[in-house]
């Protein structure tokens, strides 16, 4: 009875008409120690199928997140560093305080002294600019050239 059933199943199996459940039944039958001698042929086939189900993938898969992710955070860090830099720079400027005078007479004295120094330096500068007068002289002599131009115009008219 059981054998008959198996034979029927095998025929259906070869036509590709068995359900998964029926195929499992076949696999179970052929994994026994002893099977009917005329069905022995099938045994290695089902044994092979069952064996192959056990093979496993053991290699690791390196799952990396995309690089775009890192760039985003690097830019955030760069902006942070910039802002800290600017903050320190501006706070340094504020600490450049030279102080004030309490005594007005002393303040007046200091101011005149420093103004005197400025005017001294300024006069030095203007004295060197005196050479420019020489340039004016040269330019005035060039006025003769206009006379020359007048005469050439007369020539070309004729």
């Amino acid at each position: 009875m059981v054998l008959n059933n198996i034979e029927n199943l095998l025929e259906k199996y070869e036509n590709g008409e068995t359900t998964l459940k029926e195929e499992q039944q076949l696999k179970r039958y052929f994994s026994q120690e002893t099977v009917a001698s005329h069905l022995e042929v099938y045994k290695p086939m089902f044994a092979y199928f069952l064996d192959n189900q056990k093979e496993q993938f053991t290699k690791d898969v390196p799952l990396k997140t995309k690089k775009v992710f890192y760039y985003k955070w690097i830019s955030v860090a760069a902006v942070g560093v910039l802002m800290v830099g600017i903050y320190f720079k501006s706070s340094n400027n504020q600490s450049d305080d030279l102080g004030t005078f309490d005594d007005p007479e002393l303040a007046y004295h200091q101011v005149t002294q420093s103004l005197e120094m400025i005017s001294n330096q300024f006069n030095k500068g203007t004295s060197t600019v005196g050479y420019l007068n020489e340039f004016d002289k040269g330019a005035s002599t060039l006025e003769y050239l206009t006379e020359l131009e007048k005469s050439t115009k007369i020539i070309f008219k004729n």
């Binding site: 120690e33 056990k54 093979e55």
Partner: peptide
Amino acid sequence: HSNYQDSNTALQKQVELNDSVHWVS
């Protein structure tokens, strides 16, 4: 060539079976 793990059959039969299992592959 793949290595086949042992089935629960007796050793004598196993050798024989391994050979035919190899045929299947």
